[in-house]
Design a protein around this nucleic acid. Structure first.
Ligand code: MN
Ligand code: MN
Ligand code: MN
Ligand code: MN
Lengths: 228, 228
DNA sequence: TTAAAAGATTAGGCATGACTAAATAATTAA
DNA sequence: TTAATTATTTAGTCATGCCTAATCTTTTAA
């Protein structure tokens, strides 16, 4: 039992961690981490971001030039990537082990990612079988911070006849879509092979567990898979 | 992604939750929640506790009379018990699913307990099979806040010949003790029956999975079990 | 090339919680 | 019953972060 400031004096508060993560996500998109961009991502005000940029800069986590935005230093990048790793592992845990839907886990992971324990993540990763992608198809950085390329996942609609693949993620999280997946028994990790492609309407015939089914074009355009 | 104050405006900050939990733990021991007692539990100063007592009192979570200490209101009690429930479920998760030792989980649970999601706990409880005791033998409050009596656990040393029981907790968390349990293959949930009690040295012969072993007096005095 | 618009920073505050030192109650011992 | 000791509260600060309004900079458009 201990009050908040004591919970293992982590180097960086959960607040600051979220800023680093927000900066990383912009950098990965090739966008500049301006105060207004970060403010809108974090639901805060540009003036507050300016203040935090000063703090993070003093901590050596970003390079900040007034009016020019922020860039992660290698220290800051390491922390941001570690946060992303935790976030995605927790999302995977919630979906794979606790039975949450793909669209229900983000907010909670946003909290869980800040739990400070190296061992917890090492063991969680192991428990989950070292997953490489989260339930949304986003890559999970490994313990050294390497992020595999999301592009190694493809839309199911682009898989060739005869190829086998496993479902790894989704591009939409609408209720109706997730419900439809449920109805069809399509879940993360499902292995299937493409038997036939119907050019008439873009639907495809697949085989899963020895059973053949047809998936519509609309469906397979929203599904991500890893080809074997 | 969102900055701390946004993480789902929980009614009570994690800080305040820890205060409520500290007060509960004193009340359960029949002790008074004085500012100095709470301060020492939370590693803070009595003056800080006085301040927080004012806040919690205004929120209707405690009754506070200056110089007389604090008492939980029924609202405060509900919140404190809910926190204890989360804490113990997370400890159980870490030990049973992630393979942590019994003495390694408290600090991390101290953080995890503050993750704010009703569903997360409902599903975690289910995933764990609705455990009634945590790895330390402490009862896990159910979702209505009922706490079963810890006294329904007994020291293994007090079990009669012919009775069956399952290991539910420990009274010590010393490294050497936990290591010894490991060596003997004694783990949470292990089912055994008492075959013989040796009055000479207080050791007992037990049968687990059809195999007979002898456990020393020192060992069985530190082990808690639930008799069938 | 300059004026308006958009973007960013500073200034001045506020809320939460913590800390130290000083003042005040409540206990305990004489 | 009084004096000393111990416990608690108050007063005055500090650090984090957030907010609004005002004041720059930088861009964009005339
Ligand atoms: Mn997410
Ligand atoms: Mn977060
Ligand atoms: Mn806690
Ligand atoms: Mn415990």
């Amino acid at each position: 039992m201990s009050s908040t400031p004591k919970h293992k004096a982590s180097t960086t508060s959960s607040n600051r961690q979220d800023y680093l993560k927000a900066i990383l996500s912009l950098e990965l998109k090739g966008a500049k981490a301006s105060t207004s961009a970060i403010a809108s991502k974090l639901n805060t005000q540009p003036a507050s971001v300016t203040g935090m940029f000063g703090v993070l800069s003093n901590l050596g986590l970003i390079n900040y030039v007034p009016y020019k935005g922020a860039e992660l230093t290698s220290d800051g990048r390491i922390q941001a990537i570690s946060l992303v790793r935790k976030h995605r592992l927790w999302e995977t845990f919630m979906v794979e082990k606790l039975g949450f839907k793909w669209d229900e886990v983000h907010e909670v992971a946003e909290q869980l990612e800040h739990v400070d324990s190296e061992q917890l993540i090492v063991r969680l990763d192991d428990f989950l079988g070292f997953p490489r992608f989260d339930p949304h198809g986003d890559p999970i950085p490994d313990s050294s911070g390497n992020i595999s390329d999301r592009r190694s996942l493809v839309e199911v609609s682009s898989i060739k006849v005869g190829e086998s693949a496993s479902i790894r993620g989704v591009l939409s999280s609408s209720d109706s879509f997730l419900k439809h997946l449920d109805d069809l028994g399509i879940r993360l990790g499902l292995v299937f092979s493409v038997i036939k492609i119907y050019s008439y309407d873009g639907s495809i015939q697949v085989e899963c567990d020895g059973v053949r089914e047809v998936w519509s074009k609309k469906l397979v355009e929203q599904l991500l898979a890893e080809v074997k």
